[in-house]
């Protein structure tokens, strides 16, 4: 960075404010903590919450990985990675194992995370109930009372009407048996990875000005019913590049006559497998 900006863009007082919100979020897993989100030099909805969280926890000896849709080479991931390289001068990496902080949009890496890693999620809508109750004052009350019947009824109605739950991503979870939480728009396939994860999981929503967290080794259960258990979905194919039948796949259209192929959405995972 040339001049005029602090390390990692935010001033130290702002970082302190965000760290306080983060500590509270970790102390009350899954609870949304309001914070004074700042205007960032990237637009709202493009990861400003995640960027502010990352900017508040990053140090000069960190190695940052940024993914969007699982990939390091998507334009917004590149842009955010460049931003931190520019304003914090930190080392960046595409390797999940080498990274100390991973900022993500819409995916959890396939490679299992460790205790010394932090996963920062970009969150568009922190409130899991907003489609059922858009008024924040009301939804806050519902959280305070742990009154999540609305969501159960919604899932029940899906099943009654369509035979299955209609959410394929952003499937709501219960954290540590208490708070209903949006996992951010990750595919339901990724939900189980949140459960008892050794890494710290931090969630930043810039436009809505909320932070929440899942501390290491915390129970995270996807909302379901005993007779309709939660069912993560992936395309029933092997990756065309690394042949993985375990990973989450992107669908590519190859022509306009119905041709398509499937490849891993996690580019680092796929590249590792192709090397070995």
């Amino acid at each position: 960075m040339t001049t005029g900006y602090n390390f990692a863009y935010l001033d130290e007082a702002t970082k302190r404010m965000i760290r306080r919100a983060l500590l509270k979020a970790i102390a009350v897993p899954g609870h949304q903590v309001p914070f004074g989100a700042r205007e960032m030099p990237l637009p709202y909805g493009w990861g400003t919450g995640g960027i502010q969280v990352t900017a508040s926890v990053i140090g000069s000896d960190d190695r940052l990985k940024v993914i969007d849709q699982g990939a390091d080479d998507t334009t917004n991931a590149i842009s955010i990675r460049r931003f931190f390289a520019r304003v914090a001068g930190v080392e960046t990496t595409e390797s999940t194992t080498e990274a100390t902080i991973i900022q993500t949009r819409h995916r959890i890496p396939e490679t299992p995370l460790r205790e010394d890693q932090v996963l920062v999620y970009q969150v568009p809508m922190p409130e899991p109930l907003f489609k059922l109750e858009p008024r924040v004052r009301e939804s806050t009350k519902l959280h305070a009372l742990a009154e999540y019947g609305l969501m159960q009824v919604k899932l029940y109605e899906d099943i009654a009407k369509q035979g299955e739950v209609a959410t394929s991503y952003n499937h709501p979870v219960i954290v540590d048996g208490r708070y209903l939480m949006s996992p951010s728009p990750i595919p339901a396939f990724d939900n189980p990875k949140m459960d008892m994860n050794p890494a710290i999981q931090l969630f930043g929503a810039g436009r809505e000005k909320r932070i929440y967290a899942v501390p290491p080794y915390t129970r995270v259960e996807s909302l379901d019913f005993e007779d309709h258990p939660f069912r993560p979905i992936r395309a029933p194919h092997a990756c065309a590049l690394c042949r993985s039948t375990e990973s989450y796949l992107d669908e590519l259209i190859t022509d306009d006559r119905g041709g398509r192929r499937f490849i891993c959405s996690d580019t680092d995972y796929c590249a590792q497998r192709q090397r070995t």
Binding site: L42, I78, S79, F83, D250
Partner: peptide, 19 residues
Amino acid sequence: YKDLPGGQVLGPTFDYTHR
């Protein structure tokens, strides 16, 4: 879709600029 016939064409845009 990450890729599709004709490809993604980013073209002139403010997206991914740092403001």
